[in-house]
């Protein structure tokens, strides 16, 4: 009972795509493998004939400014993202989220690509990308295409990538402009599986004492990751004040639907916590946006 028969260390995107298409059996792309390999070992994923390792493809290791955007390669270990000055400058939510994925050792192999491709509704890295309005880049037999992040997901653990035998190659994020900032936080419980009860990322544009616009991503709130669109709409153009945030808290509790996870959190608790998180993360992003200092 072998977990896999063939392990391909792909050298290029093209080689990876070809290997996936012509594996001669079931094939899955793998990077850090911190989710997939465990699922294989624990019998939660049927054995795979070919694993196509994309983590050493140079194109997936790039982290750079590219065409007026920030590009984070899908194969960059999240520990490197946490330390990287470009990400720290433009996307603190991503830094904060990546700093909480797994544990320190796991972060040296786990990748943002894997975090997203796994298609879980509360993956920390993915939630931060959702608030950053990131666009994913994927490569398949028909070449490379761009997909807005939230359009990747088809359901719990399901994404368009597997449907099309594609691999994620990276993410494009907008560069931070004056008055913009982002933040991430989550609430855990010390017992049970190391999945957050709730996590949240906020991006906003501040002008003086006003929120010009905001993006709020929350997980888990349904089988796929969600944005709190009604709250975003409400906050747009509002003066940042206790009244505003209190109303936003009420609105997010009214408009977002949570479910009960046995032994982790009831829907009621999550509904309460989403307000707590919103206050915390919104304030963090707001204060950051007010400081011109490049963090």
């Amino acid at each position: 009972m072998k977990l896999w028969s063939n392990y391909v260390l792909a050298a290029t995107i093209d080689e990876a795509v070809q290997a996936l298409a012509h594996a001669g059996g079931s094939a899955r792309p793998v990077a850090g493998g911190t989710d997939l390999l465990l699922e294989l070992q624990q019998g939660r994923h049927e054995p795979v004939h070919t694993l196509v390792d994309v983590s050493t493809i140079p194109d997936l290791q790039r982290l750079e400014e590219r065409g007026g955007q920030l590009f984070i390669g899908a194969g960059v270990p999240v520990a490197r993202i946490v330390e990287h000055p470009l990400v720290r400058k433009h996307a603190l939510a991503v830094v904060e989220a990546c700093g909480l994925i797994g544990g320190p050792q796991v972060r040296n192999t786990a990748t943002l690509g894997g975090n997203v491709a796994h298609a879980l509704p509360a993956a920390d890295g993915m939630i931060s990308l959702a608030a950053m309005d990131a666009v994913a880049e994927a490569a398949g037999a028909n070449g490379i295409r761009l997909i807005p992040l939230l359009e990747l997901f088809r359901g719990l653990g399901k994404s368009v990538l597997t449907e099309n035998n594609e691999i994620l190659t990276g993410f494009y994020l907008p560069l931070r402009q004056t008055g913009q900032a982002s933040a991430f936080s989550r609430i855990m419980r010390p017992q049970g599986v190391a999945l957050p009860i709730l996590n949240m990322a906020v991006w906003l544009q501040r002008s003086g004492e006003r929120i010009e616009c905001a993006r709020i991503a929350v997980g888990p709130a349904g089988p796929t990751p969600q944005r709190a669109r009604q709250v975003e709409e409400f906050l747009g153009g509002k003066t940042y004040s206790e009244d505003t945030t209190a109303e936003a808290v009420q609105l997010i509790r009214e408009t977002m639907k949570f479910r009960t996870s046995p032994r982790r959190a009831t829907a009621e608790y999550r509904t309460h916590l989403v307000g707590v998180l919103l206050l915390e993360v919104l304030e963090k992003a707001w204060l950051r946006a007010g400081s011109m200092e490049v963090l």
């Binding site: 493998g33 390792d53 544990g103 050792q105 040296n108």
Partner: peptide, 27 residues
């Protein structure tokens, strides 16, 4: 544990600590 939880299998690969129980040997 063989499940990326306990850290006992940590080795240092190119300067970074990594869990060897869930790291394919070919890598």
């Amino acid at each position: 544990c063989n499940e990326d939880e306990c850290g006992a299998c940590t080795v240092v690969i190119d300067g970074e600590p990594v869990l060897s129980c869930n790291y394919p040997a070919v890598k």
